[in-house]
Design a protein around this nucleic acid. Structure first.
Length: 317
RNA sequence: AUCAGUAUGGUGAAAGGGAAGACACGCUAGAUUAUAAAUCUGGUAUCCGCUAGGAUGUGCAGGUUCGAAUCCUGCUACUGUUG
């Protein structure tokens, strides 16, 4: 095979608070890589503490992409991510370096890894109409609409999952295609990359402990002040995509007097634990994943050594 | 010591004498192709088989009743009261 022409790619991910950032820097230095962040919140400027964003110092000279590139008033989604990430990868290759995707958004990682196609979207008001219908007639009504045009999707998507029902209807309305067919085509794709997909993992109790502790640290670092600044100075509101992030929506509710700080912290910790679980579920389903068990490989060096061996075995380095 | 109240899963709790544990939290498993840090779904008293199903179970011991978490008696523990 033409190994020289292969596009090589490393993915280093894992659930939130597992310790990805630190290891990704060390790995990048070892393999002459640059980092692409697959993170839906760290893309935003000014969202620093709550997103556990890497600092300039921590980067230690390693070049990062897709961090601090969007204004928090802009919305972000997978299609935007995909095109920005593709661009970054081309840029990294052009400088003869190795791209490393880090960050906890499995969906984003998948889109790049398997070159999933996102047909250009346009707003023709149809979505707003559907949202209105959902509000007035309920989710079951929309689900029935979907059943009529795309029974397979209706079967796969629960009627209560209004967001996905709406997307399926919108997709059909805009493209004339069925989203169930689109999904089938896209999920059958092979990756254009020679990649190694590492997932860091930890014993569940330890992970949850680290999550709780990290929230406490964020509060000490001034999370409440950060959110207050975003609300009062930058005029961000809860309906913006950036403010849907963990740590932002809860503290915003506290600042708006809807809940106490104690409740906000409790909910934030709880929902972050749930989020970590969903991430793990995603990674378990992903094929070709290499698990890095931090309970066994319990030092940075042993993890790096393991990763380097896998990379060599795959002819990536 | 006294009088009163309370006692049900891991937690908060439901349950007119008629299928105990609704609902919620927690825990756990999963879905996911344009908000994905989003959105949504399933399981969860105990024990045995680990699927079908069976047995046990509302602090403990009795009683009344066709039938008791529920009514009665005694005991134990906890909370409050008086001393």
């Amino acid at each position: 095979m033409n190994k020289n022409f292969e596009k090589k790619l490393i993915v280093l991910t894992g659930p939130t608070a597992v310790g990805k950032t630190d290891l990704s820097i060390k790995l990048a230095q070892k393999v002459n890589g640059e980092i692409i962040s697959a993170d839906s919140i760290q893309v935003y400027k000014h969202l620093n503490i709550g997103s556990a964003k890497i600092t300039k110092e921590e980067m230690n000279g390693v070049r990062h992409h897709l961090i601090d590139v969007l204004d928090p008033k802009e919305s972000f989604n997978i299609a935007t991510f995909k095109s920005m990430a593709d661009e970054a990868i081309a840029d990294i290759y052009s400088r003869g370096k190795l791209p490393i995707i880090t960050g906890g958004t499995g969906f984003y990682i998948q889109s790049v890894l398997y070159d999933v196609d996102f047909t250009e979207n346009f707003d023709d008001g149809y979505r707003a109409k559907l949202e209105d219908l959902a509000k007035n007639k309920g989710g079951d009504y929309l689900h029935e609409m979907l059943r009529e045009i795309d029974p397979a999707s209706a079967e796969a998507i629960h009627a209560n999952n209004v967001k996905r029902v709406i997307r399926a209807l919108e997709f059909n309305h805009q493209t004339g295609q069925l989203i169930s067919e689109h999904n089938a085509t896209e999920s059958a794709k092979n990756s254009p990359y020679n990649f190694a997909y590492f997932v860091l993992n930890l014993d569940r109790n330890t992970l949850y402990y680290r999550i709780n502790k990290r929230v406490d640290i964020m509060l000490e670092q001034g999370l409440v002040d950060e959110v207050r600044y975003l609300r009062d100075e930058l005029k961000l509101t809860k309906d913006m995509v950036s403010m849907q992030g963990l740590g932002y929506k809860e503290i915003l509710q506290y600042l708006d007097g809807e809940i106490s700080l104690e409740e906000a912290v409790y909910i934030l910790k709880r929902d972050t634990r749930h989020f970590a679980k969903r991430q793990l579920t995603w990674f378990k389903r992903e094929k070709d994943v290499i698990w890095v068990d931090k309970d066994i490989l319990d030092t940075d060096n042993s993890q790096l050594e393991f990763i380097m061996n896998e990379l060599k075995a795959r002819n990536i380095i």
